[in-house]
């Protein structure tokens, strides 16, 4: 419990050896604070911290730092997300200082979806630094008390540093090395891409454990319950780096009309049960996209309530 890096709730939960349970919330497509507060309210007490997405899928939304700050006010701990697509290193470092000043204690570093997918494909893409360099930069700011150029920071931002890992992107053999690289750069915790192909994930975790990565970093398994057969098909076909086995699509289809969402939740619950036992998995990251109101029920049925008070 000693030598906390940031002292966030998530860090404390993980350091105490609890099975972590994190959620996700997309900021509104506008300045609708009430709507955001309503979504956040569903998650309160149900998860250890909540990821706040940063213009996810390159669609403009309320800034992730502002939504994170609102979340802090609401008494829910955010995992502030930052992508490399929209900011150069100057903007990144100033936002990192800013979020810390606003009471934010976790940060997730991502490459970000290319703007070609989003609602402003005309935009210039930045990518001054990449996600691994971003991790290293946040760590340097926190642990060395220095900006990227080596200049001293007057009061450094103490953030618990997160990163993403997609075991299902290609080349598969390299994915665990990329994870290792993120950990070496300074990631304290990892959240994986939504997992549907359990066989492949087991293989991936075995490699990670063999390399001892789970001892250097907390790995949270990504879970997104399928709401419909259409969603499963869409993810299988149109989301690059997403692996949805045909058997799962069939299982959802076979559930029959009106029962697909329940089947999706059942599958997610089975996954969570397995992750609780899986070597190297320190928790689950539940991305219930636009389904925040179902999180309490899922958390309850997954047996992860009440969340530990640390």
């Amino acid at each position: 419990m000693s030598d906390m890096k940031a002292g966030s709730n998530l860090e404390k939960v993980l350091k105490a050896g609890h099975f972590a349970f994190t959620g996700e919330c997309g900021p509104p497509k506008g300045a609708n604070v009430e709507h955001l507060k309503e979504k956040v309210a569903h998650l309160k007490g149900m998860v250890d911290s909540v990821n706040v997405t940063d213009n996810q899928t390159a669609v403009v939304r309320m800034s992730s730092w502002a939504a994170s700050a609102i979340m802090v006010q609401e008494g829910v701990e955010p995992n502030f997300q930052m992508v490399c697509r929209d900011r150069n290193r100057l903007a990144m470092m100033s936002d990192i200082l800013g979020v810390y000043a606003m009471g934010i204690r976790n940060m997730l570093c991502l490459s970000g979806d290319h703007q070609r997918f989003g609602n402003h494909p005309q935009a210039k893409n930045v990518y001054d630094i990449d996600s691994i360099q971003l991790i290293a930069m946040v760590k340097m700011m926190r642990d060395e008390g220095q900006f990227m150029n080596g200049e001293e920071i007057d009061e450094s931002p103490r953030l618990f540093i997160g990163a993403a890992s997609n075991p299902f992107a290609d080349p598969f053999e390299y994915r665990v090395h990329r994870l290792a690289k993120k950990i070496a750069a300074g990631a304290d915790f990892i959240q994986t891409q939504c997992i549907y192909n359990m066989d492949k994930f087991r293989d991936f975790m075995k490699m990670a454990v063999d390399m001892g990565l789970h001892e250097k970093c907390y790995i949270l398994a990504g879970v997104t319950p399928m709401k419909s057969v259409g969603m499963a098909r869409y993810m299988a076909k149109s989301v690059p780096g997403m692996d949805v086995p045909e058997s799962l699509i069939k299982r959802l289809k076979d559930a029959g009309k009106g029962k697909v969402a329940e089947e999706g939740i059942k599958f997610a619950l089975e996954q969570i049960e397995e992750f609780k036992e899986m070597e190297g998995v320190a928790g689950v990251h539940l991305m219930a996209i636009e389904w925040e109101h179902r999180v309490p029920e899922i958390a309850e049925r997954a047996g992860v309530l009440p969340r530990p008070e640390v």
Binding site: R85, H114, D130, S131, A169, R178, P240, G241
Partner: peptide, 29 residues
């Protein structure tokens, strides 16, 4: 690389193609 990444393929690399288009090789792959 569509994102000029210097540390390996992003999470959107699939089947040797870049996440932005099936007509584009993922150079990192």
């Amino acid at each position: 690389c569509s994102k000029s990444l210097l540390n390996g393929p992003c999470g959107g690399s699939a089947d040797g193609k870049c996440e932005i288009s099936k007509d584009l090789e993922c150079i990192w792959d």
